[in-house]
Simulated assay, not measured.
Amino acid sequence: MANIITNPKVDEFLTEEKKWQEELKALREILLHCELTEELKWGKPCYTFDKKNILLIHGFKEYCAILFIKGALLKDTKGILVQQTENVQAARQIRFTSVEKIIEMEDTLKDYINEAIEIEKAGLEVELKKNEEYIIPEELQSKFNELPELKTAFEALTPGRQRAYIFYFSQAKQSKTRTSRIEKYMQQILDGKGLND
């Protein structure tokens, strides 16, 4: 058996975790036996293989979860993977609300984790929707027509940043709200920044 190496940053994270501490510790125990490297990324325990992100563990209000970065590629033979929202393209979760459930599912979890590692070893990628497949709200299109430099700046953003803006602007039900959101973020787009930068 290889030496199990824990990351002190994850130790600290788990010490501060209030609601799901025991569940996350149980998940961690399983993950540490799966030849993954433990790190802290995006403020969450992240498990990598060959410096490639395989999965995260994290707590939410109603549940805690393992989030597979390329979960959409897993076969999901047990039908347990959850797509967080319709906008999430690649990641999938397995959700838990008790330590007992985690222990009961240990073998299944190891199967899914090993499959995720094999997907990474094979270099498989989730085919993401192209940004042209997303509909630009008409309020944004009319701003692009008014200010060609805004369109140029928007197109220079990474595809992920473009998608985040399109989703955020499109979520508003009223045209007035969409317009005010666009106006609020115009300078940020012109500065080459994403929605959350």
Rank of each mutant, 00 (worst) to 15 (best):
A172R: 00
L109E: 02
G79A: 06
K176H: 09
L157S: 00
I189L: 06
I189T: 06
K184L: 11
I135H: 06
L81T: 02
T108G: 05
L73Q: 05
I182H: 01
Q83S: 13
S142H: 01
G71W: 12
D191M: 07
R95M: 06
T85D: 03
Q162D: 03
R161Q: 10
Q174G: 07
L81G: 03
N145V: 07
E127W: 05
S175H: 03
E115F: 15
E125I: 04
G194L: 08
F154E: 03
E155P: 07
E106N: 13
E155T: 09
V99F: 06
E118D: 07
F96L: 05
T179V: 12
F144V: 03
E104H: 12
L124P: 00
Q93A: 12
Q89F: 12
A91L: 01
K129W: 14
E132A: 11
V126A: 06
I80M: 14
A164F: 04
K101H: 13
L81H: 02
K101W: 09
P148L: 00
I182N: 05
E115H: 15
T108L: 08
A156W: 04
M105G: 04
I136E: 04
Q93T: 12
E104A: 10
E118A: 11
I166D: 01
F167V: 00
L147T: 11
S98K: 05
G79C: 07
P159S: 06
E106F: 15
I189A: 04
M105T: 09
L195Q: 07
I113Y: 13
I117L: 12
T77M: 06
E138S: 09
E139T: 08
E106P: 14
K75F: 15
I136M: 07
E138I: 11
E125K: 08
A90F: 05
Y185N: 09
T177A: 06
A122T: 07
L195N: 04
K173D: 02
